[in-house]
Design a protein around this nucleic acid. Structure first.
Lengths: 171, 171
DNA sequence: TGATTATATCTTGACGTCAAGATAAATGGA
DNA sequence: TCCATTTATCTTGACGTCAAGATATAATCA
């Protein structure tokens, strides 16, 4: 017990044997983050599925919900918040519209644009889903103390800022 | 300056306004990790692309390379290391075989199986790619001190272990 | 030995995503 | 006013992934 190793440790050990010239410390951090992210996605999807949603549809509905009344945004605004391409957003909106969770109306003030709004059903559904989603996230972080969680958040924030700055993304 | 906010902070602020009943601290941590992961993937892909690879093909070739001589594994072993489904692996191997980076031969000791091996070209390519990949990872972590990196790794390890145990995945 | 069960891999069909390009409407000068 | 440019969104085609099921071989056991 203790000092237990995981798959990432075994990968790093292999590299150190085969390529002792490389310092794979960073690979460990990045690899562990990737694995964790995948695992978390699977767990989050479980709850989404209980509401007939997936990560993509949840993302759009949640963005509309938290934007506040009248729970309506343009596709462009949704694209900015969710950081997907316009093609992806068109596809997501098609599905959500067909499911009766949103409406898509032409913007009377700009003939090029649309206004995407939550339906009553969409509102109820996302409000319930978010409640369960947040509870699920709490469960997934039970393994860390609040101090550790705060520390982790600080480090991730710093890292994210650094990489964003370096690559000119986000804002 | 200082105390700067990012997109995640703005999302959390919206939730706190619209749903003050929810504690979204955990959402912040998970969200920031997701964004960071996406950003990192984009940056890693840049280097993969320089070698005509993507994350999927790099993953397979790297697994074969670090397994050591004779740089050969079964599809099942590759599936276990890379944690993808068999259908995904078949697809990846088809592409790599067509590109001349691996060979796929029937296993003489088990008629159901195959032996996937790096070609000479595949070996050279992945060895060069890994060198650049590791340098790229170093660059992406320049924003953190080695102390911070170590701290982060420890927290991620603990979190990963907790979630893995909770969900019975990984090993 | 023959039948059942387990294993290794491939096949198929559906998804969500992206890049690139097509439309159509709005904007900014000349 | 008219044309060139920009903006908002949709369309198309290609990818990588997964779940479910199809095959074929191996292992087990009655």
């Amino acid at each position: 017990m203790e000092n237990s190793t995981d798959k990432i440790d075994r990968i790093l050990a292999q590299w150190r044997r085969e390529r002792p010239d490389l310092d794979v410390t960073q690979m460990g951090v990045i690899g562990r983050m990737g694995r964790l992210r995948n695992l978390l996605m699977i767990e989050l999807d479980r709850v989404f599925k209980q509401h007939d949603l997936n990560g993509a549809s949840f993302d759009v509905l949640a963005t509309l919900r938290r934007s506040g009344p009248p729970y309506a945004l343009s596709p462009s605004q949704l694209i900015e918040w969710t950081m997907v391409t316009s093609g992806t957003m068109t596809n997501r909106l098609d599905k959500l519209e067909e499911a009766g969770l949103i409406t898509r109306q032409r913007n009377p003030e700009d003939g090029r644009g649309f206004v995407v709004a939550l339906t009553a059903h969409g509102f109820e559904l996302i409000d319930a889903a978010v409640t369960n989603h947040v509870a699920n996230q709490h469960r997934l972080l039970e393994g860390l103390s609040s101090d550790e969680m705060e520390q982790l958040d600080g480090l991730l924030r710093k890292w994210l800022m650094a990489v964003s700055g370096q690559t000119g993304s986000d804002k």
